[in-house]
Write a protein that binds this DNA or RNA. Structure first.
Length: 556
DNA sequence: GCCGTTTTCGGCCCGACTGTTTTCAGTCG
């Protein structure tokens, strides 16, 4: 079994190598196909076996053939040929900051340098001095990049939930320290991608210089990488890069749209604009010289004859055609959540803690909060809260309700429910998956929550299990929850999602907001979310069938 | 190499910033 990410990596390598050969449009074609493969909620082998590779956006005849070749034989002859033409170290040269395909190729062809180590030696030996295009500053920059690459591992993309608190801190800090009006996070962060490469911050202000000064002095800012009249790039202590842009208020919507991306979405949007005799850039929508939109995103999409597209859907997966046909179905939002299905309190939690949660629940207008009173595992019930707290909970602290958590199979869950009547139960699905599942026994008040993640390729099997149990599947960061691609499979199959409400969390905690972004990215409407529905239904009926026209089907 | 609500050929987003250049190429997002 070849993982989708592995195939995508091979295509990206082809793209990089073609870049070095000076190809104009092929590299981007291979990269676009690679991005599509990475986001695929299904194993490539399954797609290939039903002959559907070419339905993947950006995959045409040639790339489909190469993917098939890779799945069949484990290699791509075309890639092997490119590799034989270009030394591996030249690719590493191209990945140095400030070095692109042109420069890397010059190092290789003109200087006979085959990799970063050789380049470092060449720089040290003064072989770049006097070479056209390499002044003092360029050489110093190169020396620094080589130094950094030798010591620090390349900083890749980071999980969204880890970047979340950092991003919120920057927004808060900027609001407090600089003369800004609007502040917004854009980029893949705003789209709710599972991983974030860097952060894009957008502000409106009359005094850009003051904003940049204040931004540079925020705690955690390690260095300024570049600074111009409208843009500043800094690097934080952890190595995360942050781009800050200051734009005029009348262009805020256009800039937000532009810097939210995705790249593929923007490219398609611009093609559409051209077809309508319009031009879109980060300052607005133009008909000739006249600016016809730009203050809000709604204006920008409207000028192109489109309904506003939620950022989480802007991936060029058919959302533009959808928006051309009419308003996009409303996606689930924080305010739709009516219930917390399971909340773990610290083992020492006292009565005051219950009251704190109840107050938080009131603020969030939650009608029910399931508090885990014990974990049933291996046929025994483990205590999880002090006796006084349990007593108080059972005697009623609205809207809190005791919930029993079961880790095991469906049979375990039924046994646990009989041993501790009156509590709902949930199944931790890794174990449930390992055993044959059967529907819960009758007469027990249950609500099944499959608490399980895994590779996107496995999503289909888990969704089917959840459907047979009448379970909802928790969405959010971490290996025990569904990521956006898997969640999309669930939504398309009519299996409801479950979202954490964040009721017990401290401010700045990322679980609930990130889970919400993931669900929205999966195209989930309020009715696709189990705990966004009216309380009282209790059990989800097993074996619900998808309803033909659900949101999940509008993309691929 | 991909793609199509003007197209199966001829396009492919577009601007900021840097360094080095005296008018622009390369990189980046």
């Amino acid at each position: 079994m070849v993982a989708n990410a592995e195939v995508a990596a091979k295509l990206v390598e082809i793209a990089d190598l073609l870049d070095l050969l000076g190809e104009r449009f092929k590299p981007e074609a291979y990269r676009r196909a690679a991005r599509s493969l990475e986001a695929l909620p299904e194993g490539l082998e399954a797609v290939a076996s039903r002959g559907a590779l070419r339905t993947i956006p950006g995959v045409g005849e040639a790339i489909a053939a190469k993917v098939e070749e890779l799945l069949r034989s484990g290699t791509i002859a075309y890639l092997d040929r490119l590799r034989s033409e270009i030394p591996a170290g030249v690719l590493a040269l191209m990945r140095l900051p400030g070095v692109g395909p042109k420069t890397a190729r010059r190092f290789w062809v003109e200087l006979g340098v085959h990799g970063p180590e050789e380049l470092a030696a060449a720089v040290a030996a003064g072989r770049l001095d006097g070479v056209k295009g390499f002044g003092e500053r360029k050489i110093a920059q190169l020396r620094e990049a080589l130094e950094a690459a030798a010591h620090a591992p390349t900083t890749g993309r980071r999980p969204l939930e880890l970047v979340w608190p950092i991003a919120q801190g920057l927004v808060t800090g900027l609001r407090a320290a600089a003369p800004v009006r609007e502040v917004a996070l854009a980029g893949s962060f705003r789209r709710g991608r599972e991983t974030v490469g860097d952060l894009d911050l957008l502000v409106t202000s009359d005094a850009p210089e003051e904003v940049f000064d204040a931004f540079s002095r925020l705690p955690g800012v390690r260095e300024i990488r570049l600074r111009g009249p409208t843009k500043e790039t800094v690097v934080l202590d952890g190595g995360l890069q942050v781009d800050l842009r200051v734009v005029a208020p009348e262009a805020f919507g256009a800039a937000l749209q532009y810097f939210t991306g995705s790249k593929d979405h923007n490219v398609r949007l611009r093609s559409r604009a051209r077809e309508h005799g319009l031009k879109v850039n980060e300052y607005g929508v133009y008909r000739g010289e006249a600016r016809i939109a730009g203050r809000t995103e709604e204006e920008v999409y409207g000028a192109l004859g489109l309904a506003l597209i939620p950022p989480e859907l802007r991936e060029d997966r058919g959302e533009i055609d959808l928006a051309a046909r009419g308003p996009i179905p409303r996606l689930v939002d924080t305010g739709d959540l009516t219930e917390e299905l399971h909340l773990h309190l610290p083992p020492s939690a006292g009565v005051a803690e219950l009251e704190r949660v109840a107050a938080a629940a009131a603020t969030l207008r939650l009608r029910r909060v399931g508090v885990v009173t014990g974990v049933w595992a291996g046929g025994a019930l483990g205590p999880s809260l002090p006796e006084e707290t349990l007593h108080r909970l059972r005697n009623g602290v609205p809207p809190l309700a005791p919930v029993l958590e079961v880790r095991g199979s469906v049979e375990d869950a039924a046994a646990a429910a009989e041993a501790a009547p009156g509590s709902a139960y949930r199944v931790l699905a890794p174990t449930a998956l390992a055993r044959p599942a059967s529907p819960p026994r009758g007469g027990v008040p249950v609500r099944v929550l499959a608490h399980v993640g895994g590779p996107a390729e496995a999503a289909g099997a888990i969704v089917e299990l959840a459907r047979s149990l009448g379970a909802g599947i928790e969405v959010g960061p971490g290996p025990e929850r569904f990521d956006p691609a898997s969640a999309r499979v669930a939504v398309a199959a009519g299996v409801p999602l479950v979202l954490p409400t964040g009721v017990e969390r401290e401010a700045g905690d990322a679980l609930a907001p990130v889970a919400l972004l993931f669900a929205r990215r999966a195209g989930a409407r309020p009715e696709d979310v189990l705990n966004a529905r009216p309380v009282g239904g209790g059990t989800v009926r097993p074996g619900r069938s998808p309803t033909g026209s659900r949101s999940g089907r509008r993309r691929r």
